[in-house]
Every structure is written in C-alpha cells, then in structure tokens.
Design a binder for these strands. Structure first.
Lengths: 214, 214
DNA sequence: GTCTATAGACTGATAGAC
DNA sequence: GTCTATCAGTCTATAGAC
C-alpha cells in the first residue's frame, strides 16, 4: 500500500499539492486549514492551488473521496471471499485495518468529523452500497454460526460495533492514550500490532458470552 | 444531571450565550464556528459575546474546561469506592458514561478533536492527575484479580482501551451507524441502553479469554 | 506553469448611541 | 446591558506579468 506521508520529489506539481493538502487537511480539518498552509506545505505558491484545483472545497472533496475509498477498499473482496472461514475473515479484516491505521493514524478522526459536520453529503460518497444488502457472504456465514450455536439474542449490530470500536477507537484517542500512559508512538504501534491477534479472540469471546447468558 | 440542550428562558444573558456557544461549538468545532453563529443561536447580538467573554477563544476555553470536567466528574469517587467490587465498579462506570453520552452525544468527538489539534494545551486542563498514580482503589482490586486468576499476560492498557472503546466509540460514529443501519436516534439510544449491561459482561469475557489462552 | 499583487468577501473585536 | 455601525485584519480566489 502506497501511503507515504512524505512528498515525493519526482511527483508532479499537481500531485505534490494534493499530497500537501492531504497532510494539512487531515491534521487540522477543513475549516482550520488555510490555503496558505497547503501552499507552504507543498513548497509552491498559493495561486497554484486554484490553478490545479478550482477551489479549496473542490480540493478537499477530492481528497475526502480518496480517503473514503482507501477505507472501504478491498473490504468487499475480503467479506465475499468464499475460501475463508468467518474467523479467518475476522483476522484478515482486523490486520488489514490496523496496518492501514498505523500508516494513517489521523484518518478515522478526520473522516468521523466530516461525517458529523454533514452526514448526508459524505455518506453519499462512501459508495459501498454493494454491502448494504444481504448478499455479502460473511453475512451468510454469520447466520450459519448463529443457527448452529443457537446463538445470540443480542442485536448483531452490537457485534459489528464492537469489532469496529476495538479496532479503530484506539487510533482516534491515540494522543490521549499516549499522554496518559506515557508511551511513544512506536510503543503505541506495538500495542496496536498486538491487537491484530487479540481482537479476533476477543470478539469471539464476546459472541460466546452471549450464548452462555440466560 | 442537568445538561439540557435547550436554552432556558429564565437564565441570565451570560448563561444563554454560553449555552448557545456550547451547542454551536460542539456541533461545528472551534474553527468552523463564527461568533455570529453563537449570537444568532443565543438570540442576542454579536457584540454581547465580547462584552461578557472577552473573546471567542476565551469563551471556547471556558466551555471546554466545563466539558472536560463533566467527563471526569465523579469518576474519582466511583473508582475509589471501597464498598463496591471490581465488577460493580465496571457496571457503575459504564452506566454513568452511557447516560452522560446519551444526553451529550457530540461531546466525545468534540473533545477528541481538540485534543488532537493541540494535545498539550488540553490535556493539561483535564486535571485528573489524582488518577495518574497507583493510589486508586480500583487498581488495587485489579491487581488482586490478576494475582488470583494467574491472569493476563496481556498489557492491562488493552483492557482499559477496550472498555473505553466499547463505551464511547459508538457515540463518535453515531451518524455513520445510524445511516448504515437505518435506525433513528431513539432506536440508537435503545441499543446504547442495552450496552450498559452488555459491556461489563463483554469486558469480563475478554479478560477471561486471555486467561485461557496458551 | 509559476509567480506577485490585489480584489472582494468575511471574520473577530470595538466604539459609541441609547 | 443591549444595540447598530464599522474598523482592521485575514481569507479565498483571480488578474496579469514573466
């Protein structure tokens, strides 16, 4: 996956500006970012931003669409893979996301913010409506498990929320966590690497706990 | 708990403006909020904001400190209570936070954002350094549990992260969740109420899963 | 394509009337 | 205390030189 934070020397001017915008927008959000910040970060002049991208907003939208795409990318392939078990899918998904989040730790907060600012505008762009209906294979596998284990009376939405919460939230709260526990970014990333193996185990434990409940 | 979203009729002008600022800042963040938005929301004029609070930033800081206080409030009392077991503390904490979050769903994203924008500035204001050292009774109880169960080889930071993630993240992702699952805010809140009882059970299951692991 | 200079709109803050 | 009017600064976007 090519998600280098640094601006490549051989990239075109347009690409350099877009990369600079990605960095600044992700760090400060749309409103707090000035076109001057992007110009400075890119090493070019302010006027070029409007030359290549018609406006600050259009540049932002372009970057946001790419971010959302990165977030949803390849998931469809994973959850529809008929050669992997439910547990394997879980492991692959978690590892995939944690890898991506270690490289782009600011991404979730950025996206959640903009969804919060204007839910309809952004959600429309996510474009994973292929996953909205129940044709996805992982759903079939889940239903089989539920039937076999005489399983959860709990809403399956909880299970999804738990999986996503356990995977993404630590990155959203990363500055706070690192401050309170006095650990470095490197040590934080080691913890996140550990979670690749732990989260699938935990999610299974959560599912089983609901089976045993009265 | 008094956290009414509406502006009271009998409140003083100063209080009404602060309440309006709370609403707008929480919804849009510092940078995207204009003093004119606050004036409009409060029903008063722009000039009064500077009359009562010297600047936009001072007003923001004041609100932020109150928010952080709300977040940390009464936790010290709960975690230091010698009359409750570890499990009871867990249940009380989760229920306490979920109640607070149902009333103030925008709070976590707002706080996480501002911590992200300037980690040092805000963390200094949290003022829970009483909880930094190991004098807290819940820590003692935790250590006893670990000793008795010959428990987790996993870093206890994971357990804390899991507890906080499971409790807070659904609120941070609320607009996304509500959109994807096509549920209303009321239905969402019902799910969150369910989690009051479920999260403590899940966290226990997570802890036990690490005991059984090789 | 890239730059400087500047227009035009908006923002936070204040002066001064009542 | 509350208002209107306005200043001074900053922002995005563009015009025009090279």
């Amino acid at each position: 996956m090519k998600t280098d934070q640094k601006i490549e020397k051989n990239a075109s001017t347009e690409e350099k500006i877009k990369e600079a915008a990605r960095i600044v927008f992700t760090r400060k959000g749309f409103a707090a970012t000035r076109t001057r910040d992007i110009a400075e970060e890119s090493g070019y002049n302010l006027a070029l931003i409007n030359y290549y991208f018609r406006s600050k907003e259009k540049l932002f939208d372009m970057i946001m669409v790419e971010h959302l795409h990165m977030f949803m990318q390849s998931i469809v392939g994973i959850v529809n893979d008929r050669s992997t078990t439910l547990n394997e899918k879980l492991e692959i998904l978690v590892a995939h996301y944690i890898d991506m989040l270690i490289e782009n730790p600011g991404l979730p907060l950025f996206i959640l913010n903009e969804i919060n600012a204007d839910p309809n505008k952004l959600i429309a762009k996510i474009g994973v409506d292929e996953m909205a209906h129940d044709e996805v294979y992982i759903i079939t596998q889940w239903k089989e498990l539920v039937a076999k284990k005489k399983a959860p009376p709990i809403n399956p939405v909880h299970i999804i929320m738990n999986l996503v919460s356990l995977t993404i939230f630590p990155f959203v709260a990363s500055p706070l966590i690192r401050n309170r526990t006095k650990i470095s970014t490197e040590q934080f990333n080691v913890l996140m690497e550990e979670r690749k193996k732990l989260i699938p185990v935990w999610v299974n434990a959560i599912i089983m706990s609901s089976v045993k409940q009265p």
